[in-house]
Design a protein around this nucleic acid. Sequence first.
DNA 1: GTGAAAGCGCTAACAC
DNA 2: GTGTTAGCGCTTTCAC
Lengths: 342, 342
Amino acid sequence: MTTRITIVDLAEELGVSRQTISNVLNAPHRVKEATRLRVEKRIAESGYRPNSAARQLRNHKSMNLGMRLPRASDGINGAVLDGFLYSLTEAAQAHGYRLTLFCADTDQQEMNRFEELLSVAELDGFVLTGTDRDDERPAWLAERGVPFVAFGRPWGTEAGSAESAHSWVDVDGSSGVRDATEHFIAQGHRRIGFIGWPEDSAVGDDRRNGWLDAMTSHFPAEEWTALSYLGDDSAKVGSSGAAELLAQGVTALVCASDSLALGASSFLRQSPIPGLASSVIGFDNTPVAAALGLSSVSQPVADVAAEVMRLLLRQFSRTAMEPENSLLRPRLEIRNFQSFNR
Amino acid sequence: MTTRITIVDLAEELGVSRQTISNVLNAPHRVKEATRLRVEKRIAESGYRPNSAARQLRNHKSMNLGMRLPRASDGINGAVLDGFLYSLTEAAQAHGYRLTLFCADTDQQEMNRFEELLSVAELDGFVLTGTDRDDERPAWLAERGVPFVAFGRPWGTEAGSAESAHSWVDVDGSSGVRDATEHFIAQGHRRIGFIGWPEDSAVGDDRRNGWLDAMTSHFPAEEWTALSYLGDDSAKVGSSGAAELLAQGVTALVCASDSLALGASSFLRQSPIPGLASSVIGFDNTPVAAALGLSSVSQPVADVAAEVMRLLLRQFSRTAMEPENSLLRPRLEIRNFQSFNR
DNA sequence: GTGAAAGCGCTAACAC
DNA sequence: GTGTTAGCGCTTTCAC
């Protein structure tokens, strides 16, 4: 590194005081235009950059956002967070913020890290992911007045109260699954099955509701209520589910994840009925789905990230305003399954 | 946030000077033990944390590392970087460092970001990923004396020179593919095919060499030299490759990636020969491989991350020492393909 | 509109 | 061993 250029160097070179330089940077309107232009020109030429540590010491603003990096999951999912992370980094960068990552094994540990990062590094805000029922993190942050936005709805407590009124952005999984189901209905399918997660999963229930909604509004209940298969998020469960539901006569399958869809389509491909394997729609539009030509419900992660950033900036600028929420609609990505196998 | 505790508060409370507190933190040996213990006790009780901005302003050390987040790739891969990122964050955290992410579309842009992050945020070092031939980044950093470690070997320039002698950590892809090939050889296979990437890819060539090595040392060349199929990194290419090589009588396939392996195994599953689909080994041990019960060569990302961190710390502590490198051996993860389809 | 003074929290250098 | 002095680079008063 060459020697550091400071505001003083510029001031001396230009024969003005250092405050003038500072003003050009932070309150341009207070500076006479001629002076301002002269200073700005010199700043650009010299490649001067204000030092963030000095600024932070003065302002208690670090221009730094924090996010816990979830442990790489076993499942195929996590690809969503991948894309989200990239978009979030990009969005933060576009607004002059940096993104600091950290690890934690539990929510409690995450809160410990919050405290540390707040006092040590003075992070300006946090992004929460993987919110679930009885999540203590929103309240922890809210109590301390720390700006944050969650990617994921507050799912309330077991008791059903939704005391945590904070800013969040989420993707409407229910609507995505409904779209997928109705896509099949439009194609003439009647016996459409659903493979999803056990009932204690908030996200899983939400997705399942999309299937319930669509089916309820098109067909009499007795025709389809049994056509649902729940299990953990694995290709194996997808395969088992496909086998069982196929025996019940389903002609199409909507799945709560690409892992499940992968297993299901893999099973169906071996079945004698032609074209059946293409009657599977997954969720999250992961790289596997793309690789296999599997249709999937795609989360608009870039939009989510941009929205998260917007809500954070909102909290930074004003004081004491209402939390705001966004429920973004996913997009159905229909692929031609045939194209893959030559 | 409650009001910030500073070193001055502690000094007043304890009736010592602020410098003594600082010494306890930074040069404990200079402080009388009784004083030290008293100070340490108070620090722990009060939850005091030294402010990093103030430290940074003084020391020009930010305790912050930078890494470019590669855009989520289309392929199934990128899962490796996922695991690496997590492990790196963890390793950095364990040593009191934070990890700052940033985006860039090109290497040139990445260097621009280096410059910015260096002058604005005074990052202490960088982690480079995705190194390839004619990579300008190592030289850029080295010229400026910025500590960095690359995940990925320097592949030299087209001319073949390897002027960039910097610290790096990499996984021996060649050895991984050799192990995979020899695994098949040990099982009695003779006609073992390889599906990989075009010849202009450094990583791809390396992996292909593993297959070449193993085959060369076991079988006469005329038997197998034709059993190689190269194309871009997609399941489709894997499928096409499997078709073509199967026609040439291969009984097992080693692939340069899980994407290729996915396509290959998917094709083979439809072939009449039973068990053939389980004679495929991929590379990177991505979640898809796990989901499908596909064998794969697994990169020891946690070890890589720990090693990267070690080499960075080494550069931080001493001055002007030799670069150091590590070539880590991947591990062959053999799975029972059958188990998946019930 | 511009300049001077003060201080954010911490630590290297030096005195005691 | 411990305290004092000075200053990292910047910005917010407050004079001028």
